[in-house]
């Protein structure tokens, strides 16, 4: 339905996006995962004809959307990364303004506004100025403003950044509803892998301006077939222990966290036994030792050698 091919964008010397190709099929929910600065926002701005690419194509329903952006723009709802609203105006006034931009007016506009307000659960606060809203409410009204013209495709740029868990789960449920019940095609951008994992049928992983992996969650996990993720839960920390693990040729990554260590290592029979021996040698008493299915976080780590949220 919407596809980009070989999309690149340079800002002066910086190559922000390099030869990115991705595709949204009708009714799909697709995730675009990557750390800050990976080029996600730049990619989706080009994809939504809001930024002219240095090279590459944007194709919507088999038509060149860069040459003729009208149809795509009419069918597209974009939720920008920033709160793209007027802070001094009330939610209602904002929605009136954006609705009119799309040529809605009169009763149809009012009905539509009421409808999206119910959808994002802000009907009772619609007269308040946006600047008096909480972070989560701002995010919700930011989404509402993109739904007024009944878009077929919804592109969202990190719609859950910096908000409380309740608002986050509200928004995730809302997106799921839009995708499953309202049959909107969704492109969801985030640097939170749990969200993408929960929400999306297919995932693209971006880093340094490039798509480094893509597929279903299972496809991505299969990238790590040769490796094993082991969780070592310990009460105390031990630097020497960590170094010993890192020095092991078969261990590729050791990540320290509050409750213990996560180890990614080559798959082999005696891995758990070896890890236990290392612990013993350093007078460590692990409370748990378990093989885990790899998360997208692990996949990213595997692909780039870095954590997703550095």
């Amino acid at each position: 339905m919407l596809e980009v091919k070989g999309l690149s964008k340079s800002f002066k010397d910086l190559k922000a996006v390099k030869e990115v190709s991705l595709e949204l099929k009708e009714g799909e929910s697709v995730g675009l995962l990557g750390p800050n600065g990976a080029g996600k926002s730049t990619t989706i701005q080009m994809m939504s004809t809001g930024l002219i690419p240095s090279s590459g194509e944007v194709i919507y329903n088999n038509e060149d959307a860069l040459k003729n952006p009208k149809q795509l723009r009419r069918d597209l709802g974009v939720v920008p990364q920033d709160i793209a609203l007027y802070e001094e105006l009330s939610a209602y006034e904002n929605l009136l303004f954006f609705g009119r931009l799309y040529g809605l007016k009169g009763k149809a506009l009012k009905t539509k506004i009421d409808e999206v307000l119910v959808l994002v659960g802000l009907s009772d606060r619609k007269k308040d100025r946006v600047k008096n809203y909480s972070g989560g409410m701002k995010r919700r009204i930011n989404i509402a403003a993109s739904l007024l013209h009944n878009p077929k495709v919804l592109i969202m740029d990190e719609p859950t950044v910096g908000i409380d868990p309740q608002s986050r789960s509200y928004i995730l449920d809302l997106i799921k509803q839009l995708n499953k019940e309202n049959h909107m095609t969704v492109l969801y951008t985030s640097h939170y892998m749990e969200e993408v994992e929960k929400l999306c049928d297919r995932i693209y992983i971006m880093d340094h301006g490039e798509v480094i992996a893509s597929g279903t969650k299972q496809d991505l996990q299969n990238l790590m077939q040769e490796e094993e993720t082991v969780w070592i839960e310990t009460l105390e920390k031990n630097e020497a222990f960590k170094h010993a693990l890192e020095d092991d040729q078969t261990i590729t990554q050791v990540i320290e966290s509050d409750q213990g260590y996560k180890v990614i290592a080559e798959k082999r029979e005696d891995l758990l036994g070896d890890l236990f021996d290392y612990a013993k040698a350093h007078q460590m008493k692990p409370t748990a030792l378990a093989i885990q299915t790899p998360t997208l976080e692990d996949v990213f780590l595997h692909l780039t050698g870095r954590k997703l949220r550095d």
Partner: peptide, 14 residues
């Protein structure tokens, strides 16, 4: 411009 309202206007065909 900074908060992408301009982007919204533009995508709405302004």
């Amino acid at each position: 411009k900074k908060q992408d309202v301009l982007l919204r206007m533009m995508l709405a065909g302004e």
